[in-house]
């Protein structure tokens, strides 16, 4: 049984960590970009960002004044049991979000879409989002908590493409998205770009968002052909000639991650998401014995999450001819 107090306490620590400490993988990626940026203004912006991360850490203040929209990804082992059950878990995550919004402080961003009601704590109807996954390994009773504070207004798009659009169509929509996000830098590039391909409209958005927020800089899709496409898309995005804030430069994309899901046979859904200069994510694994391991890689997309089919006894008529 995993202690609910420990979950709430750890969730509070994660809120702070995400808001204050830039993950090392993104920082390394941004430093590499800063070293090779040639645009005068774009280069100035990247240097200022690097300084900003230092200051945030030194002062223990949020790196960006805009909290984005804090959300939670919860993953559990097959045998994990949470004290008080899933209802207690959700209450703990909501409470931690509210407490650290006031405590750190974070800007209260979440309001009612129509009445603009603001509880000044980033909690409301459907906020923070809490999403779930399960994992067969490692064995034992554990729960992974990941919080992501993604910038919330700009830098997301979706398009229904069709198989005949092909890779050329995918590239076109990718470039269209980046050029649109990038002007005046409203989506705060250079970013981790996540692309979702396939699924249904909602799952396509979810895949792309997770590709941006739950995979690290330098990670590659397990499918070698998709991994190649990731490299190519990164390169393509950085050839636009646009840098930070939409100034002339050569870094828009710190990395490009692609995730796919099986879709309707007639379609090829595509979504594009930019995880900004404040790529805020923090993760902890809590074990039933009270051990806590903090990290910044959510390690979400395992072979299990990308499983292709099911073990079953296919009827003989179903066997594919060679």
């Amino acid at each position: 049984m995993i202690s609910i107090d420990l979950i709430e306490k750890t969730a509070g620590v994660l809120m702070d960590k995400a808001a204050v400490e830039i993950p090392q993988d993104y920082l390394d990626g941004l430093k590499a970009a800063a070293n090779t940026e040639e645009g005068d203004l774009a280069s100035f912006v990247l240097q200022a960002m690097l300084e900003n991360y230092e200051v945030a850490k030194e002062d223990g203040r949020a790196m960006c004044g805009d909290t984005g929209t804090p959300r939670w990804y919860v993953k559990m082992s097959n045998t994990a049991q949470v004290e008080g059950g899933p209802i207690a878990l959700e209450a703990a995550l909501r409470r931690a979000t509210a407490n650290r919004t006031v405590g750190l402080p974070l800007r209260p961003n979440r309001v009612h879409p129509l009445w603009r009601t603001d509880h000044d704590n980033n909690v409301g109807i459907g906020a923070p989002e809490i999403e779930y996954g399960f994992e067969p390994t490692p064995e034992g009773e554990w729960i992974d908590l990941t919080t992501v504070h993604k910038g919330g207004l700009f830098g997301t798009d979706y398009r229904m493409l069709f198989p005949s659009d092909g890779i050329e169509g995918i590239k076109r929509f990718y470039l269209d998205s980046l050029v649109a996000f990038g002007k005046r830098g409203l989506a705060c590039q250079p970013a981790i770009i996540g692309i979702g391909l396939g699924g249904c409209k909602d799952t396509c958005m979810v895949l792309g968002k997770r590709a941006a927020c739950l995979r690290t800089v330098g990670s590659r899709n397990a499918d070698p052909k998709i991994a190649e496409l990731e490299d190519e898309m990164k390169e393509l995005g950085n050839s636009i000639g646009m840098g930070a804030m939409g100034f002339v430069g050569k870094h828009m994309v710190i990395d490009c991650n692609i995730e796919v899901g099986y879709c309707h046979t007639g379609g090829m859904q595509m979504s594009v998401h930019a995880f900004c200069l404040s790529s805020r994510r923090a993760v902890a694994r809590i074990w039933a014995d009270g051990q806590i391991e903090y990290r910044t890689d959510p390690d979400w997309f395992t072979d299990y999450q990308r499983r292709e089919t099911v073990e079953w006894d296919a009827p003989p008529s179903h066997a594919k001819s060679a």
């Binding site: 100035f44 200022a48 200051v55 804030m245």
Partner: peptide
């Protein structure tokens, strides 16, 4: 503003 995420620098 710069970045635009230079919230900590400006806060200082």
């Amino acid at each position: 503003t710069v970045g635009y995420g230079t919230g900590a620098l400006l806060g200082r």
